[in-house]
């Protein structure tokens, strides 16, 4: 989550300005701090030698010079700042991969219109190719923030915001909603998985592969899923088409559950299914009244979706 370990063009731009400003600020702080300390020691009132100092009231030339000096320092900071503001907000290149990001209370939805892929909470992007995010939201304001890949950009209902970056190095990068959005704001995490181009192509293909019919416990789980309220909110391609919660078609290919809350395992998924608000305060998914066996069956089914 450190902005100092930048892994995209956007994050490097910010780090560049951050570096300039930080070093300038450290320099100024040192000059002022040392001058202050020296002045207090040098001009301290010594016992016995109390005197009335010269009653200086000002010095026009000095005051003009220390008005101009900060202006020059600011000019040196302002130029790279404005360059970076414009570079990071430029129109995305034509070959950029378009992704629409929806911020929901309290999870992330990612849609790849050109690839016809929909996923949640774990965003896959290819390394070395510009990614153009369009941010929009159906409920309250959220903010998309993956510190190592770029700056914050708010997800504001009624507006379309853009964020374009090119990830450099394959790996997994954590992100977090950065605009207070209600009770479980702190539990609105995400992961961005930067894949090498061929790995990204494989991931896309895997998202679109027809799912094998489950067997055994997983088949029981599927029956429970299909027969319950689950289908009202969740889409599993070929099974249901709910739109309120995350698309679960390839749930098993993800690493975490409930917006980065827990690693995916049968135990964790079963615990979530039994009572989501117990794990994530105010979660919109209600407790479903499943028995332990039913929850484990559905968990096994969901984890098999990959």
């Amino acid at each position: 989550m450190s902005t100092l370990a930048a892994r995209s063009d956007y994050a490097r731009e910010i780090l560049h300005v951050y570096g300039i400003v930080t070093w300038v600020a450290i320099g100024i702080a040192l000059v002022v701090g040392v001058a202050l300390a020296w002045i207090i020691v040098r001009f301290r009132d010594r016992p016995g030698a109390s005197r009335v100092p010269a009653q200086t009231r000002g010095h026009t030339l000095l005051e003009i010079s220390w008005t101009i000096a900060p202006a020059l320092v600011l000019l040196a900071i302002a130029i790279p700042t404005i360059q970076v503001i414009f570079r990071t907000q430029a129109a995305p290149p034509r070959d950029a991969l378009e992704i629409t990001v929806y911020g929901h209370q309290w999870w992330w939805e990612f849609r790849y219109p050109a690839l016809q892929v929909v996923t949640a909470n774990e965003l896959h992007v290819p390394a070395g190719r510009p990614v153009a995010l369009t941010l929009q939201g159906p409920d309250v304001i959220h903010s998309f923030w993956v510190p190592r890949l770029g700056g914050k950009r708010d997800v504001i209902p009624g507006r379309l915001n853009r964020l374009t970056f090119t990830a450099e190095t394959p790996g997994e990068y954590r992100g977090q909603c950065a605009e207070f959005c209600g009770v479980s704001h702190a539990n609105m995490g995400m992961r961005v998985i930067v894949d090498a181009p061929d790995a990204f192509a494989r991931w896309v293909a895997a998202q679109k592969t027809e799912l094998a019919e489950p067997a055994g416990l997983a088949a029981e789980g599927k029956a429970i899923f299909a027969g319950r309220a689950c289908v009202g909110c969740h889409t599993i391609r070929g099974v249901s088409s709910g739109a309120l919660g995350p698309d679960l078609t390839t749930f098993g290919s993800r690493h975490t559950l409930a917006a980065g809350l827990l690693p995916i395992s049968v135990d964790n998924v079963a615990a979530w299914l039994k009572n989501p608000p117990a794990l994530k305060p105010d979660a919109k998914m209600p407790a479903l009244g499943l028995t332990d066996e039913q929850a484990r069956a559905v968990a096994t089914y969901l984890i098999g979706l990959k």
Partner: peptide, 22 residues
């Protein structure tokens, strides 16, 4: 930052050459 900086420099200059009771 400019007027703020000016204030700080003027404060330093106020202390400069004074008889500072610490």
């Amino acid at each position: 930052a400019i007027p703020t900086g000016v204030k700080i420099f003027n404060w330093l200059a106020t202390l400069w050459g004074g008889t500072i009771r610490t």
